[in-house]
């Protein structure tokens, strides 16, 4: 396999349809740098799992090119999979076996020493529960066992489909930390999720997929910087305030519990504040903030829908 590649995962005009006319992926060109934690986000049915299945060679009747580790997945399937750990949809565990037996089975198939199974179980905090049957595990424990299996072969690439599903907040934080440690050790992580607040904290790069089309791709920091700071206003009665602002020709929108004033400058903000004070409106807060990933996501996908 090639050793010189700019992107560890690279797809070129990747398209896939389960049925004729129903395009699940349309001209998707992913570019995942080595060592990145790439968050692949999209709503349910956007094409995330389909793309992951293509990357893992579970679907091979696609159009376009798919290169991983610089090699074509169709030509070097086994070699690529040998260097990849994965978790697709829900963890595929044998519930009548114990956690340890599940790990042993995996280590047998991958020709790994038992010590690797032990290590991975410790890493995911399941070592003490290893002799319990998986049927007695909680959903969160099963999810962690699935991740432990994916990690067991010390893969260079980790592909995780919704890895924080069923995890409690503590478990989510642990997985986030684990992924950061893995990436620091040179592992490339490709994860899909629809929990945007979690992705935002965990990833270095992001891809936004919507109705099978890749709408955005790039560093997370770049996405944030690209988003202008906007002013938010909190008053005693936001609805009345919104009406008042509109009467004075000032554009504003409700944004959760606050009013979004858009990208206004300090002078404009002061003028609005004076106006509101003059009308007897109590202003509790006037602050600037960058948009969250969730806001950016909806902005990007709504724009695409409008086109």
């Amino acid at each position: 396999m090639a050793h010189n590649y700019q992107y560890l995962i690279e797809t070129e005009a990747l398209s896939f349809a389960y049925h004729p006319g129903q395009q699940a992926l349309a001209q998707v060109s992913l570019q995942v740098k080595p060592g990145a934690i790439y968050g692949f986000i999209g709503q349910n049915g956007a094409g995330k799992t389909t793309a992951i299945k293509v990357l893992l060679s579970l679907l091979d009747n696609y159009e376009g090119k798919v290169h991983i580790f610089g090699a074509d997945i169709r030509k070097k399937r086994k070699e690529i999979l040998a260097r990849t750990g994965s978790l697709v949809e829900e963890p595929a565990l044998y519930h009548h076996l114990t956690g340890w037996e599940n790990m042993l089975n995996r280590s047998l198939l991958l020709r790994l020493p038992k010590s690797r199974a032990e290590e991975a179980l410790r890493q995911l905090g399941l070592f003490d529960a290893r002799h319990k049957k998986v049927s007695a595990y909680s959903q969160g424990m099963r999810q962690r066992l699935g991740i432990a299996q994916a990690l067991m072969s010390s893969p260079e690439l980790l592909i995780l489909d919704e890895p924080t599903n069923s995890l409690d907040p503590n478990g989510i934080r642990e997985i986030r930390q684990l992924l950061a440690n893995l990436a620091a050790g040179g592992v490339t992580v490709f994860l899909s999720s629809h929990v945007l607040s979690e992705v935002e904290k965990a990833v270095t790069d992001i891809g936004i997929i919507h109705q099978g089309r890749l709408l955005f791709q790039g560093p997370m920091a770049g996405l944030r910087e690209g988003a202008r700071e906007e002013a938010y206003l909190d008053t005693g009665d936001n609805l009345q305030c919104l009406e008042l602002l509109r009467q004075h020709g000032i554009t504003a929108n409700m944004a959760g519990q606050k009013l979004n004033l858009g990208s206004i400058g300090r002078e404009e903000a002061a003028r609005i504040n004076t106006l509101l004070a003059g009308q007897g409106v109590k202003v509790y807060a006037l602050e600037w903030a960058r948009k969250s990933l969730e806001q950016l996501f909806f902005e990007i996908t709504n724009t695409a829908d409008a086109l």
Partner: peptide, 18 residues
């Protein structure tokens, strides 16, 4: 059934095996 029970067929086919 061992494979159906947890949708493990997919998992099996992601192993580096023919």
């Amino acid at each position: 059934q061992v494979e159906h029970a947890s949708n493990a067929w997919k998992n099996l086919f992601t192993l580096p095996y023919p």
